[in-house]
Design a protein around this nucleic acid. Sequence first.
DNA 1: ACAGAATATGTTATCGATAACTAAAACATG
DNA 2: CATGTTTTAGTTATCGATAACATATTCTGT
Lengths: 339, 339
Amino acid sequence: MKRSRSRKKGDIHAIAKEAGVSLMTVSRAMRGVEGVSEARRNEIAAIARRLNYVPNSNARALAMDNANLIGVSLPNLFNDVFADVLNGMRGAIEYAGYSSIVDTTDYSSKNELAWLERLLTWRPVGVVLTGVDHDPALRERLQKSGIPTLETWDFSIDPIDICVGIDHRAAGRQIGEYIVSLGYQRPVYIGTKPGRDLRAEDRAAGIADAFSAVGIQPVPRIFAPDASNFVMGARGFSIALEGYSPDVVFFLSDHYAVGGLMAAIKMGISVPDQLGIVGYNDLAINAILPHRLTTVRTPRRQMGIMGARNLLARINNVPVEKAISLPVEVVIGDTTRQQ
Amino acid sequence: MKRSRSRKKGDIHAIAKEAGVSLMTVSRAMRGVEGVSEARRNEIAAIARRLNYVPNSNARALAMDNANLIGVSLPNLFNDVFADVLNGMRGAIEYAGYSSIVDTTDYSSKNELAWLERLLTWRPVGVVLTGVDHDPALRERLQKSGIPTLETWDFSIDPIDICVGIDHRAAGRQIGEYIVSLGYQRPVYIGTKPGRDLRAEDRAAGIADAFSAVGIQPVPRIFAPDASNFVMGARGFSIALEGYSPDVVFFLSDHYAVGGLMAAIKMGISVPDQLGIVGYNDLAINAILPHRLTTVRTPRRQMGIMGARNLLARINNVPVEKAISLPVEVVIGDTTRQQ
DNA sequence: ACAGAATATGTTATCGATAACTAAAACATG
DNA sequence: CATGTTTTAGTTATCGATAACATATTCTGT
């Protein structure tokens, strides 16, 4: 018998030999599958422990053509937002006995596509994407492969497969209408450069909808050069004040808004008397700000949990709703005037 | 020939048949290994593309007993700190052609051990751990397995394998000495509950070292009930003011310190005149605070990059230093009195 | 006590790919 | 042109585990 690569001890064969049983008996015993007597099962478990047996998931995945793996793609990890979603999701995924592998795309659909290609070689049972805007090739790839796919954070009535998210445009409209109702008339929106964060652009569009409904338009959109979110908020704020004379400033997110708020404090601008400030997401930091931000609470954790549940259902061929939009809630803070 | 499980098209066999060559030729062509003529190689590549060939990494990993995988364990993702380290690391890892899979332990060494057990079934070529305090079983497991292991963030002269991190106690001493030099005499430290974040406890010990060197001790340690870091900072701050009358407050991190600073602003306490505030990490938010925090800049990204490089070297049997401690830098801000 | 059912265990083929070794074809060299 | 090289391509065994099918053993009820 030719054995060029030496068989290291510790695999299922070694255990079988040691226990004097066949491979299958060991395999069954290790997996807890029925068909092995209690006595044998214990005996085998003991031997496995003694031999420091570590199952080989690669072999198992190959044999079963299934790695019990779910791939998750996020724009980045620098953001409590996605961490919340992810945490909710992971709990559910792991509870169901699957593993998740996470990667980041830095808001690039090219990266996302490349990530997917790599992921597919591992034969995942499910895929989670952030947002609904992807490289066209990605959509085709996933649909052709038939792998259950969840799009989250964002909402689309025509998802690749299923979707649990927020209708950002509607959310923008919602907060926009509230701000309009407070009588603000000269809004400005501060975000990041066009094309980078499409959800944020949807929000901005929703805000503009609300203002244009009362005859106010356009809502100028401003962005500062790349930096941390806090800094971009602060810089964008300065730029806004130079070029416009807003009575309310919408920010891409609370991070940005904190930057803006701090800048306002430093500049001696009184909030909300002289100027309103509006964020998005209701992040943890909001709880400790000197003026609580007026913002929009997004059900991030819940979205993660529900998304994962639906994806798991889909994986198990249980029918689920194709597209679910979760409601958001306007948080009335101290950075806008009272009603 | 018995073929109970049908062979789906799209694998290496299908390509071989289509191209009229053997398996090995396809295998070699796909891997870019030498031994295939240019013409054949192109022909095979074209067919693979046409057939939507997706390599099966599970099979490859099994055959090579190596998945080119590096497992990374972090306490959590809610923290820019680890995100920085991770980003630095990933770049280097992926550049070298490896994949990384990340998981979080929520500061639990039990979770970490369970994670490792799962990871090992995938036959990783390297492992990255955060910190140097682990379940004893984990240390033994890794050393017995012989898998190159990097411990990061923290520093130890006796790592499991190799280590690139910060000497947190020394860092605590460093900032402590600076604060002592400013003449502060009644320090308080605000952190989280004992046993949760051991690095932070080291820092606190270092701070205490610095004060005890000038005869001031103890440095009371305070913590608030679980909440977000910002909130714990703010609550801890209130507790500190009730129970003690500090002239300087050290916080576990900048997150906590921001919570404290905001609380101070709300309470009308003038910083730094009445009270000094000291953070840790020099996070992005510091750039936009009304008073820039006095804090400690930690080389997080660099740590990730260097850690990854050393781990990769170790994986390739290139000798590297066992333990590297990176220097930190005191950032002099506006939340402590001037020299 | 004995046939049929239920339980326990073994045998063989496969999963998709790579390593090691072999064989054939193309190139050189004197 | 014969022979030794180099290149290119094929054959066979394996990686570690599971599925499907076959077989042996233990129960069960009559």
